[in-house]
Amino acid sequence: MRSIINYLKDIFWGVMSLLKGLKVTASYFWRPGAIVTEKYPENRKYLVMFERCKGELIMPHNDKNEHNCISCGICQMSCPNGSIEVIPKTIDTEDGKKKRILDKHIYRLGQCTFCGLCVKNCPTHALAFSTKFEHAVFNKALLIKVLNKPGSQLKKGVEQ
């Protein structure tokens, strides 16, 4: 007799537990407000990324096309993957002195692991992360970027 009661009890509790699970899933079926899907390409226009999002490395330029980079090479040294290469050049200033300025700041996006050490270690805050995250390209060579814009100069007043 006891075994029959246990048998029926088993069935009852088993069915109850299944019904509880069904209740959760069925309740979501009738609650379209809980949908979390983002319609990605459509929502591009109003998509706001978090400001600290590490999309890609950039060198901010102001409206006079000036940047902060003094081509010290600390970012290159602190990069664990060798994705940064700073190519300096020496020019003669007006007062006849020799000066080391930035020629090319090469950034290989394909190698970057977004650890953020370059941005953190930069003494002049010349580097930053942008929130742009759409990096897909058809040609691998396009992933090698030159961060300083053509014709850009060092901002006045940045320590050498």
């Binding site: 979390v36 600290r52 590490k54 692991t113 977004f114 650890c115 953020g116 953190k120 992360f129």
Partner: peptide, 30 residues
């Protein structure tokens, strides 16, 4: 779905979602 909320917290503070790289010797990055 619920993990996404934690990842959003991570992204807002550290800039990374899964691969956070938030620590550095002596403290945290930001």
């Amino acid at each position: 779905r619920d993990r996404e909320m934690v990842l959003d917290i991570f992204e807002e503070t550290t800039g990374g979602r899964m691969i956070v790289s938030y620590n550095c010797p002596g403290g945290v990055m930001y």
